[in-house]
């Protein structure tokens, strides 16, 4: 007979001070971020949204004349907008849909009862968004460089900050939708918004190129703010303060609203 193996079941301590059994906050957030990142990168639909569609947009804008006149070379005008689109894919649509369904299935409720907690869950998701964004920037930025993209070096640090700010704004918006409506509605809203904003939201094509009143409306959207600010800094190294303020305002407003109205179940 084999030796009796120790039981795998928990055992309550009978003596001594009970102490926390939680992994540290940083450990929990990093581990959950890694888990969510693997989940996003392992999901076919998410990859289409995060990589395939932005690549198509990059090729489309580079091989047509839509963006002629925005920059000296088409690729220089196209690449920043496509990176902005990547932010929207991952932080808003991808993140929103997965959070919506996690909420439906009670996954958020369950994880909130573990040491991860609600705050750790949100930080972990934000970390996963940034991790996937890094993958997207490397892949799609790499293809753009191959196609001849030459971003203005002086504008790159601000460009990185803008991508992070954009991720914060769109993550907050995605969580706001995912936390307030049914997951099917989240799916519909975030996909539709992605298509509409990609086509006419100033993200790929400057809002100023849209006709009349539409261009004024689009100018205050987060998509247009992110697209315009990224284009300006990566094409000419200039800072579009107005666009940055609009993006900040969206981040604060959506973050506040999500904190206020997000329903965990």
């Amino acid at each position: 007979m084999a030796d009796p193996t120790p039981s795998p079941l928990p055992e309550a301590p009978t003596t001594g001070a009970r102490r926390s059994n939680a992994a540290s906050l940083t450990t929990r957030v990093v581990r959950h971020g890694g888990y969510e990142t693997r989940a996003m990168l392992g999901n076919g639909e998410q990859l289409v949204l995060a990589v395939a569609l932005p690549l198509l947009a990059l090729f489309g804008l580079t091989f047509t004349s839509i963006l002629d006149g925005v920059a000296e070379h088409r690729i220089d005008a196209a690449a920043p907008g496509v990176l902005a689109l990547c932010v929207m894919s991952t932080a808003f649509t991808g993140q929103g849909i997965s959070t919506g369904f996690d909420r439906r299935y009670g996954v958020l409720r369950f994880l909130a009862t573990t040491p991860l907690g609600r705050a750790g869950l949100i930080f972990g998701k934000a970390l996963a968004v940034l991790a996937v964004l890094v993958v997207q920037v490397v892949l799609i930025g790499g293809v753009a460089l191959f196609l001849g993209w030459r971003p203005e070096p002086a504008g790159i640090p601000l460009g990185v900050l803008l991508l992070i700010l954009g991720a914060a704004a769109f993550t907050s918006l995605g969580l706001l939708i995912a936390g307030t409506v049914r997951p099917e509605a989240t799916l519909a809203i975030t996909n539709l918004a992605w298509i509409l904003l990609a086509a006419g939201g100033g993200i790929l094509i400057p809002g100023s190129r849209l006709p009349g009143m539409l261009s004024d409306i689009v100018a205050v959207l987060p998509s247009s703010a992110l697209g315009d600010a990224l284009r300006e800094t990566l094409i000419s190294g200039t800072m579009n303060m107005g666009a940055i303020l609009i993006l900040l305002a969206w981040t604060i407003a959506a973050g506040f609203a999500a904190t206020r109205w997000f329903k965990w179940n």
Binding site: R18, S20, A22, P115
Partner: peptide, 22 residues
Amino acid sequence: GGSALRSRVGVMLQDGGLPPSV
């Protein structure tokens, strides 16, 4: 109670709370 308390308490929810694709 925060994470210190949650680390000493296990919860099984009625609907399970399990992600279906995992």
